[in-house]
Nucleic acid binder design. Structure first.
Lengths: 231, 231
DNA sequence: TAGTGGTCTAGACCACTTT
DNA sequence: AAGTGGTCTAGACCACTAT
């Protein structure tokens, strides 16, 4: 692993574990350079990337600090809901609702570049923040590119994490919309009445083709997606 | 201006002018370093930031290339709804619902870094794609930073376009959520029944402070937000 | 083999904030 | 005055791509 990556991981762990709460000072560039025996430029790169991701905030002359939770919800949520929840210092757990082989519908076949009726892997997992589901992840996977997908224990690793290591992911496209959840989704989300939900439809590629199509549904009352742009 | 910024601007101008179309090779790090008489690390930083912004794509061993347009479109919709609609070759028009001076509520004052009761400019504009509204733009503006805001004709220029030229915008933060629209919003959106709506809350800064706070509401049935990520 | 981007070093000067 | 982040230099070695 690259040195700057190791430093990022170190800082990230401090935050995720709760040892460094919101607004807590992060070791300075010089301190990290000493500690990890690297040049200041390398330590700097680690902090700079964390700042770009919205994990920390840097102020000239003052220092680097753990970002307020509201600023941290950038694209991490799109990438890894479990880390996102843990970084907020909340309890995370998953509940596997569906995990099986299926035959591809027309829509799924098109999304995965397969033929209708071809075998696909299908999972549905509820992701809990404390004791409420904040996301239902419906996922379809191309079996050719992740043969062991059904054998994983998704209480310990998220599908996204597994797929990242099974197939180096190169790009993703996503579409964000507002929808009314189906009755089935209301059950999985523990919603007694339907409420507007934020939905992210995402297709993810590796060098060998479409790996997975995911439909992520979040209750509007429990979730928002933040971001930051510099012009 | 910092040297790496000047190089970014140079590359950006080549692309915006059309001189370097999609997939056209961008000068290499070494070439830019020579041309601008800077070290390779500085030229590298310029290209790296352009890559982070999705403007160019870099491939190890091969080179740097102008990104395909699809990768650049992600945040266009957030920036300028009129251009987005016209790019789809649909008819666009705006309807101004509200355009006046008001006293800031507690929330608006906080968002604009003003005191409650201070004067703010307030506009509400419906944006039509063909003959249906796809966005209601509720916007609050800091009068100190855009004194002529109320004098513009928003059938000919969007508030965002006007603000861009009145104050160079430097950054924006936004939050995306799913909501149930109020009765007033249903009227503005020509919705007979409430339906889930996608909402974008955005604060925009210039060098002099918060310029504007905007609440953009889109009917779920008529709008989705697309994006593209490269890992 | 030559060129490219990815990583890294060991310095330097500056503007800024805190004490 | 001391510490911080922001910028920059002039090298270096590596893995990868194209020829």
């Amino acid at each position: 692993m690259a040195k700057f990556s190791a430093i990022k991981q170190h800082v990230y762990n401090k935050i995720a574990s709760g040892e460094w709460p919101e607004n807590h000072p992060v070791s300075s560039e010089n301190a990290l350079a000493l500690q990890f025996k690297v040049s200041r430029m390398t330590a700097r790169r680690a902090l700079q990337e964390l700042a770009n991701e919205g994990i920390v905030i840097r102020t000239k002359g003052s220092g680097t600090f753990v970002a307020p939770i509201k600023s941290q919800t950038s694209f991490m949520a799109i990438r890894n809901i479990a880390d996102e929840i843990r970084a907020r210092q909340h309890r995370y757990h998953a509940q596997v609702q569906v995990l099986r082989r299926e035959h591809a519908s027309d829509l799924i076949a098109e999304m995965l570049n397969l033929q209708p009726g071809d075998t696909v892997f299908h999972s549905v997992i509820s992701h809990y923040e404390n004791d409420l589901p904040v996301q239902v992840e419906e996922r379809y996977v191309n079996p050719a590119l992740a043969a062991d997908y059904l054998k994983q224990n998704y209480n310990e690793i998220t599908p996204h994490e597994y797929l990242c290591q099974a197939q180096p992911l190169t790009e993703a496209s996503h579409e964000i919309e507002a929808v009314t959840p189906s009755n089935q989704l209301c059950q999985w989300l523990l919603l007694t009445k339907p409420e507007p939900c934020l939905r992210i439809n995402r297709r993810t590629w590796s060098a060998e083709g479409v790996v997975t199509y995911a439909v992520l549904t979040h209750p509007g009352s429990r979730f928002s997606l933040g971001g930051h742009l510099q012009f």
